[in-house]
Simulated assay, not measured.
Amino acid sequence: MTTVAGVIEFKAKAGKGGDVAGLIAAALPHVENEPGTPLWLVLRSNVDPDAVYLVDLFDDPAARQAHLEGKAAAQIFATVPPLLEAEPIIHPADVVAFKEI
Rank of each mutant, 00 (worst) to 15 (best):
T2F: 07
T3M: 13
T3Q: 15
T3E: 08
V4G: 02
V4R: 14
V4K: 14
G6E: 13
V7A: 09
I8C: 04
E9W: 03
E9N: 08
E9Y: 09
F10Q: 13
F10L: 10
K11V: 11
K11G: 00
A12C: 08
A12E: 04
A12D: 05
K13G: 06
K13N: 10
G15I: 12
K16V: 00
G18A: 13
D19T: 15
V20Y: 11
V20G: 08
A21T: 08
A21N: 08
G22R: 10
G22Q: 02
L23A: 11
I24H: 07
A25R: 14
A27C: 06
A27H: 10
A27Y: 05
P29I: 03
P29S: 07
V31D: 04
V31I: 13
V31H: 09
V31M: 06
V31Y: 01
V31G: 06
E32A: 12
E32T: 14
E32G: 03
N33K: 15
N33A: 14
E34H: 02
P35S: 10
G36P: 10
G36W: 13
T37H: 02
T37S: 07
T37C: 14
P38D: 09
L39Q: 13
L39G: 01
L39C: 03
V42S: 03
L43G: 10
L43M: 10
L43T: 11
R44G: 11
S45T: 09
N46G: 13
N46D: 06
N46F: 08
N46R: 12
V47C: 00
V47E: 12
D48C: 04
D48T: 12
D48R: 11
P49E: 08
D50Y: 11
A51H: 13
A51T: 08
A51E: 13
A51G: 03
V52D: 06
V52R: 15
V52G: 10
V52P: 12
Y53G: 05
Y53P: 03
Y53T: 12
L54A: 06
L54H: 04
V55M: 10
D56K: 07
L57F: 09
D59F: 01
D59Q: 13
D59S: 15
D59R: 15
D60V: 06
A63Y: 07
A63N: 10
R64G: 05
R64S: 05
Q65C: 00
A66L: 05
H67S: 02
H67T: 02
L68P: 00
L68E: 02
L68G: 08
E69I: 01
E69R: 14
E69G: 02
E69C: 01
G70F: 06
G70L: 04
K71G: 02
K71P: 01
A72I: 03
A74F: 05
Q75C: 01
I76C: 02
I76R: 00
I76N: 02
A78Q: 10
T79A: 08
V80N: 04
P81F: 05
P82V: 07
L83Y: 11
L83W: 08
L83H: 14
P88W: 06
P88I: 05
P88Q: 05
P88T: 06
P88A: 04
I89G: 06
I89V: 15
I90C: 01
A93Q: 05
D94S: 09
V95S: 06
V96K: 14
A97F: 15
A97L: 12
K99R: 15
K99M: 07
E100V: 05
I101A: 09
I101R: 09
